[in-house]
């Protein structure tokens, strides 16, 4: 019995070396001067200062947050009806629908994102359809719109599945009770269904905002070279200029933004579920 416990120990060592140490290195590099030796580590905030004092980087930061927020909001607004419709299907059709939504997420994100280039291109599918009506061609590729579209496309399945999970767990007798007590359809939805599906929305927000704010190949593939997000800046620091300290500092700024976003999501969840319970 007890012997089985020792099966864990190799992974304790492995995860300390492969997970914990690399994470610690990011923190150390972010807070120390370049060219440290092991015996002489100098603490500094220079990396963070040079990030926040540069208007170009601040602009990138704002743009990244903006895009991630828009993506998350769109995923909720577009994903909710889909999840709702699926939850109302017959059980067998629900399984099929969920499978159909899960399937594309198993296929390489880069492949699916690249495919949009053909569809959105100046000579692509959408513009040739518009051309039949004598419209365009419109420049869609290499705009903010294309980036947001690519992000919504890649991340909305997570939102749909999370909302669907919480909707399908809901006891239908709540809806009957609301109807018996005289609530109309809209009131039932806003007072019963929506508050009960809130946990799904909250975990969906985490699953969408996190990859959206850190993505760097979607802006590069669909936004063109000029459309920089924070992930692209990190990429450049490590793969082009080799400024590890600065790159580490930026990734820590990004981690803080993600933590704040999660905190806000949980706070809203708490507030609204308390309110929903009182009304």
């Amino acid at each position: 019995m007890r012997g089985f416990r020792s099966m864990l120990y190799p992974y304790v060592v492995w995860s300390f070396i492969m997970i914990v140490i690399p994470m610690l290195m990011i923190v150390v590099y972010a807070f120390t001067k370049e060219g440290n030796s092991v015996t002489n580590i100098l603490f500094t905030l220079d990396n963070f200062k040079s990030f926040f004092n540069d208007t170009v980087f601040i602009e990138v930061l704002e743009r990244s947050i903006f895009i991630a927020v828009i993506t998350t909001v769109l995923c909720i607004l577009l994903g909710y009806p889909v999840a709702y419709v699926i939850a109302k299907l017959k059980p067998a059709s629900q399984v099929t629908a969920v499978l159909m939504i899960t399937l594309p997420t198993w296929i390489n994100m880069l492949v699916r994102t690249y495919a949009w280039r053909g569809i959105l291109d100046k000579n692509g599918l959408i513009n040739s359809i518009l051309g039949l009506f004598g419209i365009g061609p419109i420049k869609i590729l290499e705009t903010g719109f294309a980036v947001i579209l690519g992000m919504v496309y890649n991340f909305i399945p997570f939102m749909i599945l999370q909302i669907y999970n919480s909707l399908s767990k809901m006891d239908p007798s709540y809806l009957e009770a609301a109807a018996d007590l005289g609530a109309n359809k809209a009131k039932t939805f806003f007072k019963v269904t929506l508050p009960l599906s809130l946990p799904g929305i909250i975990s969906g927000i985490t699953l969408v905002f996190l990859p959206a704010v850190s993505s760097f190949f979607i802006p590069k593939l669909l936004g063109g070279g000029q459309y920089m997000l924070i992930g692209n800046v990190i990429e450049n620091q490590f793969l082009t200029t080799g400024k590890w300290g600065f790159g580490s500092a930026i990734s820590m700024v990004m981690a803080v933004i993600i933590l704040i976003a999660m905190y806000i999501a949980r706070y809203i969840d708490k507030k609204l579920s308390v309110k929903g319970g009182l009304d």
Partner: peptide, 19 residues
């Protein structure tokens, strides 16, 4: 610890491993 690579953005895991 196990949750770290699952929860972290890929790019953070990636730069940690690179360094």
């Amino acid at each position: 610890i196990n949750d770290l690579p699952v929860m972290n953005p890929d790019i953070v895991t990636a730069i940690g491993l690179l360094m």
